[in-house]
Design a protein around this nucleic acid. Structure first.
Lengths: 349, 349
DNA sequence: TCCTACAGCGTAACAGTTACGGGCCCTCAA
DNA sequence: TTGAGGGCCCGTAACTGTTACGCTGTAGGA
């Protein structure tokens, strides 16, 4: 209905100018460009490229560039997304949201210019971008996070109940001082895990000791740091819940290096996005989410949204996680270990 | 120069028919379609989509669908490729080579139809596809493998010399019976590592014992299997070279579980694509390749190839790997351990 | 005053795609 | 036998967006 020529007529300019304005080419005054983009937005203009429909799904990260090392979670999620997208005969393109978007053009215009008909978004803690894109009416699915905005569709996994179950498991083994080692970037997932931790302790009548909650980066170094920080305390915990796979790995290796026997001296509950829990020594008890199936499901929904012409109903799903007991949790130690000022191991009597 | 209308004229048909034939739409007889595609290939026809240049780089895997779990190497490689592609203001799309390519259309036509101007390919052991695409003149770079075909451009890392250095390191520590644990899918990388192993032993005057060379899948289970198979022998090795990160991890954990002291009882040299060697206990001595920088470099070259109009000169580079001594190699044990029929540990005197 | 340079824009020709309709052939019923 | 329908194949023409080329006006300097 609305074409380049229509916009040109309405503004009393030529189609060439409109096209130039749309594609960030030179030879257009800033004022004309702004008017064109503004009118295009009002008309919900979609370039239809000789009418040929495109079937590319975009995968958008807010950061630029994508952080150098795709973690285990991102890799598993991507595997799942690829599988789902291929199943529906679409392709997948990585799109950088920040790189070459013109400030005056809307995200809708930007994605159309890239030939992308719908996107899957990661938030990494900041959901403002997905809310803005949703408000433009462009089909977008937030994956592995949630948004307060009631218009945003998302697919997340919920770890509150399972985290709570994990802490209850520890309490049932006699643990009373339980540490919580979290990612220092707060998203809803980590809030979930923290509230599960607090609820379990509260219901068991154990007062939360804020000094037992530590935060660091979600990598092996962060795991070592958090373990050390917790065990250097005068009254160290007898069990720790790590909310991230990499920090769990780092902590387990630090224990091996220091001579801390897991689970005899210290019980550890970790988090797993795929099969990492089976690849450590000892295999760790974990709250598990299935990142692959999360990706598959996200891809299935977004391909449907890309194909349907009218707007999809808002979609919100939180998938349950599971709790798997392996080899790193046991009865609370009667003589908890702590780390001395020189890094040596001290057994409290 | 050659347009849809030109092809239509030459065949005495209409542009609509040509367009339909190109895009796998119905309403064209098979014979006409074949004639159109054949002539388009002869004319080196490139659809130029209203003259608008596309700048999407394709990432192509021969298998369909992409194997469910992107390994550490694939994830690191992808990180690097993304970084390089973004740096050059291009986008990256995953393309499935097998999914919806029409048998009669060439790969060049297929990629143009997808809006992809150049591709990076993974081989997974079979280089026939990249050779075929190269022969069509489409810009393609094979990454992390090599091809015999002199027309194929590739970027690989060579591990022969470094593998040899690793074995020489073991020999200098007094090891004489050294096991080789390989991936059961043979590509040039693994051939490299095997020949480095053989050359080092040969030059040291040690006869290769074929029973010390075992193969399995490149995952943790494969590592455990290979370790077991080697140590069950009557004259077990005192050191093992694992040519894959995941099998190295599996073997190290199996050692912890069995009570085999590394490196006192058994020395292990592993392989690393990123930073895995620092995330095990003990940290393992390894032949290291940098998958991220491999990806960055591949992306830089292919974006240049995508932008230049004429064909690029053939590009071939093999990047060196490095050898890093960490905590899993030491002097050859005087009383090598072996695994008994019931899985128990036996110390040979 | 005249010349040059450049930014901004329009005309027209180009690219590829598709709605519509028209032959052609086959089938089936009157 | 003939007419009606229907499906396949294809062409005409109208549509999409893009760009080479040239025009106009303005600013600056010789």
């Amino acid at each position: 209905m609305s074409s380049v020529r229509q916009i040109a007529n309405e503004l009393g300019i030529s189609v060439a100018t409109v096209s130039r304005a749309m594609n960030q080419r030179s030879g257009v005054s800033e004022e004309t460009r702004r008017k064109v983009l503004e009118l295009a937005q009002r008309h919900q203009y979609k370039p239809s490229m000789g009418r040929k429909p495109t079937n590319i799904i975009g995968l958008v990260y807010p950061e630029e560039p994508v952080k150098s090392d795709l973690g285990d979670f991102e890799a598993s999620l991507l595997s799942g997304i690829l599988r789902g997208v291929y199943e529906k005969k679409h392709d997948l393109a990585f799109i950088s949201a920040a790189r070459d978007k013109h400030p005056d053009e809307t995200y809708t215009q930007f994605f159309h210019r890239k030939g992308v008909s719908a996107i899957i978004m990661r938030s990494l803690g900041d959901t403002s971008l997905v809310e803005r894109i949703t408000s433009e009416g462009f089909p977008v699915l937030l994956v592995a996070d949630r948004s307060e905005d009631p218009a945003v569709s998302y697919l997340d996994s919920i770890s509150h109940d399972t985290s709570r179950k994990a802490i209850e498991h520890l309490i049932s083994l006699g643990h009373k001082r339980i540490g919580l080692a979290m990612h220092n970037i707060v998203d809803t997932d980590h809030q979930d895990r923290e509230s599960g931790y607090r609820d379990a302790l509260h219901d068991a009548g154990i007062k939360v000791d804020e000094s037992l909650i530590v935060k660091a980066e979600a990598n092996t170094a962060g795991g070592e740091i958090m373990l050390t920080r917790l065990l250097e305390q005068e009254h160290p915990p007898t069990a720790i819940f790590f909310t991230n796979p990499m920090s769990t790995i780092g902590a387990l290796h630090k224990c091996l290096r220091l001579g801390i026997k897991v689970p005899k001296d210290l019980s550890i509950v970790g988090f797993d996005d795929s099969v990492t829990r089976h690849q450590t020594f000892p295999r760790y008890t974990a709250v598990c989410q299935d990142a692959i199936s999360l990706g598959v499901e996200a891809a299935r929904w977004i391909t449907r949204a890309a194909q349907s012409d009218e707007a999809m109903p808002i979609y919100r799903e939180v998938r349950p996680t599971s709790f798997e007991v392996l080899e790193t949790t046991s009865y609370a130690s009667v003589s908890p270990v702590r780390i001395g000022p020189d890094g040596e191991l001290i057994r409290t009597v």
